[in-house]
């Protein structure tokens, strides 16, 4: 049933996964939030992390990029153990992070927001390609970051990490609070990124949205991965199963 539970990465095979999370425990101060999260992200795949409110999805992403001070276990990014590293050292290994609240800086223009994250790899997409993907942004470069609509802020949050050349993208609920048309646009964008070969970890509550984008779902409950579901062949009952985990 649980794919993650019996996948053990042999030392030499580490680079076969883009990201490998093993027995991850994490705390906010005294409060123990993640209790042994384990999953793998193969290169070029889209992994979705789903679970109820407060299950630990955001915390998992924050722990991966090093934003939780206290964490134990193992997080290997393309063969490099990152559990002892600082956020800036971790993302330099090729991770782009889009936080749940989007993190657009209000005292920075759209252009400054776009160029803020340090470039970590030779670009996979150049500037023109990025702005083709997000045409709204191209002619708003001088606007203050927060003059953008929610959808445009989400697009800016994605555009700026695409600029860094990071091949592994962590997206925390990119559709939260957005109108259906915009959600569709963001789905289309993620699909194109997947086709370009990006590896994506998507946190989502919206199962119908995530279904067609995702290769494997990992269900988180109370800080643990309790189930993993691959999409694709003959999984007619899978959507229902996922929805029942979310109580929707």
């Amino acid at each position: 049933m649980s794919e993650a539970a019996h996948t053990h990465t042999a030392p030499g095979a580490a680079s076969a996964t883009m990201l490998s999370v093993r027995d991850l425990n994490a705390w906010y101060g005294e409060s123990h939030v993640l209790h042994g999260v384990t999953f793998d992200v193969p290169p070029g795949k889209v992994i979705s992390i789903v679970g109820r409110n407060g299950a630990g999805k955001t915390t998992t992403l924050r722990a991966i990029v090093g934003l939780l001070k206290k964490r134990t276990g193992s997080i290997v990014v393309e063969g490099t153990e990152t559990i002892g590293l600082k956020p800036r050292q971790i993302t330099r290994l090729g991770i782009g992070y889009v936080p749940e609240e989007r993190g657009i800086f209000s005292s920075l223009s759209v252009r400054e927001n776009f160029t803020l994250p340090r470039v970590v790899r030779p670009p996979i997409m150049d500037r023109d390609e990025i702005f083709t993907l997000f045409p709204n942004l191209a002619h708003r470069l001088n606007a203050p970051g927060t003059k953008l609509s929610g959808g445009e802020q989400q697009m800016l949050a994605m555009a700026r990490i695409l600029r860094t050349g990071a091949p592994l993208l962590l997206l925390d609920e990119p559709t939260e609070g957005l109108a259906p048309v915009i959600i569709e646009q963001i789905g289309e964008t993620i699909r194109r990124l997947r086709d370009k070969g990006f590896t994506i970890v998507l946190v989502e509550q919206n199962i119908p949205f995530a279904w067609s984008l995702t290769d494997t779902f990992h269900v988180i409950e109370q800080g643990r991965v309790v189930d993993s579901i691959a999409t694709g062949h003959g999984q007619t009952d899978a959507i229902g199963r996922l929805k029942s985990y979310l109580g929707v």
Partner: peptide
């Protein structure tokens, strides 16, 4: 940016 959100700025390298 760091005045607004130092954590995120550190994630951005």
């Amino acid at each position: 940016a760091a005045t607004e959100n130092p954590e995120l700025v550190s994630v951005f390298g």
